[in-house]
Nucleic acid binder design. Structure first.
Length: 430
RNA sequence: GCGGGCGUCGCCAAGUGGUUAAGGCAGCGGCUUGUGGCGCCGCUAUUCGGGGGUUCGAAUCCCCUCGCUCGCCCCA
């Protein structure tokens, strides 16, 4: 390619898609504010060690997907592949937890060196929440509801919530041993990927997509059976809580998730409209992470939502229901007024008028071509403007402006340029 | 990282060895130098993602490369 272009998997966000993006962020911001979550912004670049220790060396994210490099001081740096580890690091660094539990949210780019496909980029964007110091089963329910309600608020349909419990770290160890023992006796029946995982990350064999391995796993010991009674009660309380709120969910005993720090509740919200990359939002409890990163043992839970994927389902929802909330967010904004102007004197008056109206919060386009009125009207029409404000030298001379409704036939009116209130009022009436 | 498909104007596309490389949308100009939505006319790719090769001749065939896409993997 001779022309300069962005790096593979790195995409530009152009005004048209950014409109939707900002609508989503505005909703999210408001939603989090109501729930008592405060925004946090952490650096995009962290020491590589943070992610190795936080996410786990054996995970794919750390093992093969990180953007890492040595900086000029010969430190190993990594572009963050996810948000949780950074947020925990920041909370510890600034002693936030000594002030009690922290309810935080963030939004920003993440980086994973993967092969791009629909709904998967190398730089992608997440909106996420982390509730550090959340202990109760109810906090799990509250946090899941926070994600579910945000999606509902955006008008995104066709979603499914899947939940599972990974149990306590001890439960997992016990289960892991039982599973490995069981699978080792049948290892020749496993697909090659799963065989490899037997030694590296056996729990991930559970969500294999290999049909034969899936069939074999039907008979295998289950994580649910390995849960201690305490863990089981906890998980039941979470399910009960979701039922009470009327949030539909599906138990998925195969839901394991790829990052090591998860324990107990794990969940995903998926869409059938995304193809292979179906997860829109994923999260869970990570009671061990904060201690692992050097803090006092502190239970916590959080989730992250993929912005690009969310926008894909949002657009699908908008198409399915043109009058719904999603469609409203997707729709572009249309100018309230388009100022058709021509001539030296009019030109100056038109700019002044545009400034005044914009100051009143109206969306005003000012034609800059100086071409024939017919051309300018044509452009005003193409933009979908509601009103054309006509300002030629005749009008400028008389200190007037003509207002012509464009969306339906109607009388053109003439208002003095000094009667700003009257102009604004006319423009605001549809 | 592995396997399949694809890449022609800003967008959607026809063309599959010899054509001036269709057409539509958008854009610009004109019919209409003070009034849009309809219509008509004209303009907008020396070039087919990029580079090499085969051939008298390549958008069309081959190789490499870049990118997109679908699946695997993984996750948001």
């Amino acid at each position: 390619m001779s022309q300069l272009q962005s790096l593979r998997g790195m995409v530009d966000l152009l005004p048209e898609v950014l409109r939707r993006w900002q609508a989503v962020e505005a909703e999210a911001r408001q939603h989090f504010r109501c729930a008592g979550f405060g925004e946090i912004r952490t650096p995009l670049l962290e020491t590589t060690d943070l992610f190795c220790r936080g996410i786990g060396e054996a995970t794919d994210v750390v093992g093969k997907e990180m953007y890492s490099f040595q900086d000029r001081g010969d430190r190993s740096c990594t572009l963050r592949p996810e948000g949780t580890a950074s947020v925990v690091r920041a909370a510890l660094q600034h002693g936030l937890l000594s002030q009690g539990a922290q309810k935080l949210w963030y939004a920003g780019p993440m980086f994973r060196y993967e092969r791009p496909q629909a709904g998967r980029q190398r730089q992608f964007h997440q909106i996420g929440v982390e509730w550090l110091g959340a202990e109760s089963a109810r906090s799990d329910v509250e946090v899941i509801a926070l994600a579910w309600d945000l999606l509902a608020r955006l008008g995104v349909g066709g979603l499914e919530l899947e939940v599972n419990s990974l149990g306590s770290p001890e439960d997992r160890l016990t289960y892991r041993a039982a599973l490995v023992q069981w699978l080792e006796q049948r290892s020749e029946a496993l697909d090659p990927d799963s065989q490899a995982r037997l030694s590296t990350n056996p729990l991930r064999i559970l969500d294999t997509k290999n049909k034969d391995t899936q069939a074999l796993l039907e008979e295998a010991p289950t994580l649910a059976d390995a849960l201690s009674s305490e863990s089981r009660e906890r998980f039941e309380a979470v399910q009960q809580g979701l039922c009470t709120l009327g949030i539909p969910f599906r138990l998925n005993p195969r839901l394991v998730r790829g990052l090591d720090y998860y324990s107990h509740t794990a969940f995903e919200i998926t869409s059938d409209r995304l193809g292979a990359q179906a997860t829109v939002c994923g999260g869970g409890r990570y009671d061990g992470l904060i201690a692992q990163l050097g803090g006092a043992a502190t239970p916590a839970i959080g989730w992250a939502l993929g912005m690009e994927r969310l926008l894909l389902v949002l657009e699908a929802s908008a198409q399915a229901d043109p009058d719904g909330t999603a469609a409203g967010l997707v729709a572009g904004s249309v100018p309230d007024a388009y100022i058709v102007n021509r001539g030296a004197q009019a030109s100056a008056a038109a700019l002044a008028l545009a400034r005044e109206l914009r100051g009143k919060g109206l969306v005003v386009e000012l034609d800059d071509s100086g071409s024939a009125f017919g051309k300018q009207f044509k452009r005003a029409d193409r933009r979908g403007a509601r009103w054309a404000l006509v300002l030629g030298d005749e009008e400028a001379e008389r200190r007037e402006v003509r207002l012509k409704p464009l969306q339906q036939r109607g009388e053109e009116s003439v208002i003095a340029l000094t009667a700003m209130a009257a102009i604004v009022e006319t423009l605001q009436t549809p």
